[in-house]
Design a protein around this nucleic acid. Structure first.
Lengths: 344, 344
DNA sequence: ATTAGCACTCGCACACCTAGAGTGCTAACG
DNA sequence: CGTTAGCACTCTAGGTGTGCGAGTGCTAAT
C-alpha cells in the first residue's frame, strides 16, 4: 500500500516517538514534528485514517496512538533510514573482538555479547552451520587401557571430542593405523557425508579390523553429526526482564524459547542470508508472538555461515540494531577468515 | 540453641506447611498436626515465643507464621529428616545420564538438566576444577600455511583448542618436533604449573627454535589457563520466573547473578566438598540475598571435583533437593570415572 | 481540505468500606 | 504453673465510588 507523504511522515513520527519513549503519542504533541505544519485536528483525522488502515492502534480510548505490528513492518520496509555507525562504535566493536581469545567459538560468543551490550537486549550468536563444512582432521588420544578420545577438527575451525571404549587393550600402533586410515578417507569430506552407510563401507573396506571398533566409528559419526549442528550462545537474556514495555509473560516466553534448543534452532536455521527482521506474529513460534527478531548472517570464506541476532519486544530501535549487527557480523567473519587463513 | 520438643514439632510443622503450600499458617490449622494435642491458645503461645526467638515471622499482623532464614537454618541443621529416594527416581536419573553422549561435558550438562527438572528450579553444574588436573596430551593440527590449531586434552577428559599463527610457513615435520618436545615435558604436569616462567624455561631449552614460536607457546599457556577454570552449565533458569513466592526483582537478581560468570564462579569455588546449603543472607553475594543454594560436589578418582547445585527462593524443599543432588552427583562421578578408566 | 470548539470516553489514582483471618491478652481451670 | 476459652483488636484483600486529565471524534465554520 502506498501512503501519502504526510501520512508517512506522521506514521514515522509516531513510531519513532514510541520507540524512543515507550509512550503513546497524541495529535497535539505531533504538531511539533519537523515539517508538519497543520493543526492538531488535521493530524487527528490522519491518525484516525492510519488507525482504520491498521498501521496504528490505541491502547485505550483516551490514550494516544502506538504502532501495530503492521505499522512497524511498513516502517521497516519503507520509512526507516539506514543509519551510519559512528567510527568510535566501529572501533570499539573491532577492539573487543580482537581482544577475545583466538578460538572461533570465543570470537562468536564475544560478538553476541557485544551485540547485546550495544543494542541493549538479548542476543544470539551461532557457530557456522555445517552445510559447507568438511572434516579437516581426526586425531586420537589414548586416555586409558580400554578408552581413547577422538578429536574432530572441522574446516571452519570447530573442535569436537568424544570418548570411546573398546573391549581389548588399545595400543599406540593401533591408534596410528586408524588415524591414518580415517584421515585418508575422511579428510575433506563434507560432515553430512559421514553417515551410517559411509561408515559401514569404511569398516568393510578395512576387513576384520573394522569390525573390532564399532564404538570408535560410532564416536566418529557422532562427532560429525554434532558438528553439523551449530552451537548457539546467548547473551544478556536478563535484559529482557528490565524492558518495561515487556510484560513478565512475554519476557518469560522469550527466555523459555531461548533455552529450548529445539525451537530456537528451528528459528535460526530458517533465517536466510543477509539481514532479516521478524516482527510479532511473523515469528512462527508462539512464544515469540510479542517479540521482534533482527538477524544477520556473517560470512566465512564468502559463504553465509553463522548468525548474529537480537531479540526483544516489538518496540525496537530497528535502524540501530541493523547497523550494529551488520557491523559486528562483518568484523566477525573477516576475523575468523583471517585466523583460518582462508584469505591468504 | 536447644528447643523443647513441642517447639521443635511446631517449628517443623510450620516450615513443612510453608514449603508445601507457600501460605502462612496459623494456630488453628496447626492443631491438626500429627501428635500435637493441645489447644490453639497454647500453640499461639508457642508461636509467639518462636517468633520472639527469631525462628518465625508474620508477613503482617493478621496472617499466620512463616519461617525466617534462621528458622530454615535450624530446620536444615536439626529437624529435617533425610529422605530416601524412590528406586524409580534413581533408575530414571541413571538412565538419563547413561543415554547422554559420551563426552564428560555432555554428561555434566545433562546432570544439571536432570537436577533442574526433578527439583523444579534453576540448576548449575560445573566441569571438574583444575586443581588436581594435569596435562594429558597436546596435539597439533595444521589449518593453513601460517596457522595451526593446538588441542589440549586434560587428565579429566576435557578438551580445549586454540588457533595460532606464525610468521613463516609451517611444515608437518616442524609440528611433529614440537608435538614430541611439548608432550615430553608437559604431559603429566599439573595445569597450574604451565605458567610463563615454565614456558620461558621450555623455550630456552629449545634454543633458537624456541624463540620462533612465541604465539604457539602463548596458545599452550592460554589453553592450560582456561582449562584450569571450570565450565559452568545452567539449566532451567526460566523456572525461577514461575515461582510465585519469588518476586520479579529477586528472580531477576538470581538470573543476573547466574549470567555474571565472575560472581558465579566466586560462589562456586568457595563451596567445600560434601553437601552445602546457603540460605538467604548467608550468601555472600547481594543478588542472592533472598535465595537459597544447595550444592554438592561429585568426585572423580575419589577426589572432590565439580559441582552440582540448585538455586531458588529460600522456600525450598531442602530434603528433596539434597537427596536428588547427591544421587545425581554420585552417578555422574562414577560414570565419568568409568569413561576415563580411572577405576579399572 | 482544513480548522476551532466542545462534549464525550476512559484509565488511573485515591479514598473508603467490609469481611475474614489470626493475633495477643486476660481470666479461669486443674 | 502450664493450659485453655473467650474476646477485643489489627491488618489485608478486594470491591465500590469519585475526580482528574488526556485524547478523541464530531460538527460547523472558514
Amino acid at each position: 500500500m502506498k501512503l501519502a507523504l504526510r501520512k508517512q511522515k506522521i506514521l514515522a513520527a509516531v513510531i519513532e516517538h514510541y520507540i524512543a519513549t515507550g509512550e503513546p503519542i497524541g495529535s497535539k504533541s505531533l504538531q511539533n514534528t519537523e515539517g508538519l505544519d497543520v493543526s492538531s485536528a488535521t493530524i487527528r483525522n490522519e491518525l484516525a485514517d492510519l488507525t482504520v488502515k491498521g498501521f496504528l492502534k490505541q491502547p485505550h480510548t483516551s490514550a494516544g496512538r502506538i504502532p501495530t505490528e503492521y505499522g512497524y513492518r511498513y516502517y521497516v520496509d519503507n520509512l526507516m533510514e539506514p543509519i551510519k555507525l559512528d567510527d568510535r562504535v566501529k572501533r570499539y566493536i573491532e577492539n573487543r573482538l580482537l581482544s577475545s581469545s583466538d578460538a572461533p567459538e570465543h570470537i562468536i560468543k564475544t560478538a553476541g555479547a557485544i551485540a547485546s551490550e550495544l543494542i541493549g537486549t538479548a542476543a544470539l550468536s551461532t557457530t557456522p552451520t555445517g552445510d559447507n563444512t568438511r572434516v579437516h582432521r581426526i586425531k586420537f588420544v589414548q586416555t586409558g587401557r580400554h578408552t581413547s578420545m577422538l578429536v574432530l577438527i572441522t574446516s571452519s575451525g570447530m573442535v569436537k571430542s568424544r570418548l570411546f571404549r573398546c573391549d581389548f587393550d588399545i595400543t599406540p600402533e593401533m591408534l596410528n593405523v586408524f588415524d591414518r586410515a580415517l584421515n585418508e578417507s575422511l579428510a575433506g569430506q563434507p560432515l553430512s557425508a559421514v553417515n551410517r552407510p559411509f561408515v559401514q563401507t569404511f569398516a568393510a573396506s578395512f576387513g576384520e579390523l573394522g569390525l573390532l571398533m564399532p564404538d570408535m566409528l560410532t564416536a566418529v559419526m557422532d562427532a560429525c553429526k554434532e558438528s553439523l549442528g551449530t552451537n548457539v550462545y546467548t547473551s544478556g537474556s536478563t535484559k529482557l526482564l528490565y524492558q518495561n514495555d515487556f510484560d513478565l509473560i512475554s519476557a518469560r516466553g522469550v527466555l523459555e524459547f531461548l533455552s529450548d534448543s529445539d525451537s530456537r534452532d528451528k528459528l535460526l536455521s530458517g533465517i536466510p542470508e543477509g539481514t532479516t527482521i521478524y516482527i510479532g506474529k511473523e515469528n512462527s513460534h508462539v512464544l515469540l508472538r510479542h517479540s521482534a527478531v533482527v538477524a544477520t548472517r556473517y560470512e566465512i570464506d564468502n559463504h553465509p555461515a553463522g548468525l548474529m541476532a537480537v531479540i526483544g519486544s516489538t518496540r525496537f530501535d530497528y535502524p540501530k540494531a541493523v547497523a550494529i549487527l551488520e557491523c559486528i557480523a562483518e568484523y566477525t567473519g573477516s576475523l575468523i577468515d583471517e585466523l583460518l587463513s582462508v584469505r591468504q
